[in-house]
């Protein structure tokens, strides 16, 4: 085996190719984030500094220091290519600089404070929606399931078309404002401090019910529709006919033959849906003033805090790329028909 053969075999390796793709996502995204502000000809950072300087106020103290830090960090007198290099080096070290609005707090610590809330909320929501939606879709795509299921699930399927935050507004009005069953906003009661206790955990769950319900209700349909489509496609396949001819029990046909084969593409859809779930939940967090990433992003947009916006978008894209990579790499373990070796 020559060196060239080894190189070739590495290149055709499935995992390696997926990893290259992951790097490409990060490179393209970070380059876009670098170029867009320069193409627009405006400088949000400088504008923000000028604005605050005109206003005076509480920002005055850090202004000089920040301006110095800003020009030193970005070397604005340097050529574009050098700026690009510095920028990429900073990103590579996950150094996004200080927040403008909450100086000298760093972007990283702002994101760190809120990431756990979003992660917790979205992980639970995605799990429930995937599970319930897939079962609903399987039942809807199964010819022998009772008719009334159609009438129960069809309205829920149409909810798939509606953005999460519209549902959030409706739920908050009915269940928090009118019925007063759940709190109106926040991740935990205003007077309490986060701690490890049963009461606090209960409080967090109580606050999360409405935001979670709006995300779950609005994303159920996506999973149900995908699953139903796959179930219908599987219906005419040879293995289904063979299993039926063997006289297997209906329940066994359903779970071991139809569902088991239909659920595989759902896991690929999981990779693509993560982005949708995150971006969809941003406004849900804003509406419920949930202390997660979405709300931090919203505050940053309102305060024109460009470093926070940039850092957060970069981190989210890296996370999504990484999740996609992990799902892509584990997929062949789930589905033996897809092999590591064949390439994409």
């Amino acid at each position: 085996m020559t060196f060239r053969d080894i190189l070739a075999s590495i290149y055709t390796n499935y995992i390696f190719r997926r990893f290259l793709f992951f790097l490409l996502i990060i490179w393209i995204a970070s380059t876009a984030i670098f170029l867009i502000p320069r193409l627009s000809g405006q400088d949000p950072v400088k504008e923000k500094l000028l604005l605050e300087a005109q206003r005076g106020g509480h920002m005055q103290a850090g202004l000089e220091e920040m301006a110095a830090e800003y020009s030193r960090k970005f070397g604005l007198d340097k050529p574009l290519l050098v700026q690009y290099g510095n920028y990429m080096a900073d990103l590579f070290r996950f150094d996004f600089g200080p927040s403008i609005a909450y100086f000298p707090k760093s972007v990283n610590s702002l994101i760190g404070d809120s990431v756990i809330w979003t992660f917790g909320l979205l992980a639970v929501c995605t799990f429930i929606a995937f599970f319930v939606g897939t079962i609903a879709g399987a039942l809807l795509g199964w010819p022998k399931s009772p008719n009334f299921l159609q009438y129960i699930f069809m309205p829920i399927l149409t909810l798939a078309a509606i953005p999460y935050y519209l549902l959030a507004l409706v739920l908050i009005y009915i269940f928090a404002f009118n019925l007063d069953w759940f709190p109106l906003f926040g991740g935990y009661a205003v007077a309490t401090l986060p701690e490890w206790s049963f009461n606090f955990a209960w409080d967090v769950v109580h606050h999360a019910v409405l935001p979670a319900s709006s995300i779950v209700l609005a994303s159920l349909g996506f999973w149900a529709l995908g699953m139903r489509g796959m179930m219908v496609t599987n219906q005419g396949e040879d293995f289904m006919i063979a299993a039926e001819a063997k006289g297997l029990r209906s329940i066994r046909l359903f779970f071991n033959y139809a569902v088991r084969n239909a659920v595989l593409p759902q896991t690929t859809a999981l990779a693509l849906s993560l982005g949708t779930v995150f971006t969809g939940s941003v406004l849900v967090e804003v509406i419920f003033r949930y202390p997660g990433l979405g709300n931090t992003l919203y505050q940053a947009i309102k305060l024109n805090d460009f470093f926070v916006i940039r850092g957060m978008i970069f981190i989210v894209i890296v996370t999504l790329g990484l999740a996609t990579f992990i799902i892509d790499v584990t997929y062949p373990l789930l589905d033996p028909r897809v092999s590591y070796k064949k390439g994409s």
């Binding site: 996502i25 984030i33 867009i36």
Partner: peptide, 20 residues
């Protein structure tokens, strides 16, 4: 493929913040 993995709205936020 890259564009499908990166949520479009995030790029749109960067664009919109800069046009404003």
């Amino acid at each position: 493929d890259v564009g499908l993995t990166i949520p479009g709205i995030l790029i749109l936020i960067v664009i919109a913040v800069n046009i404003q």
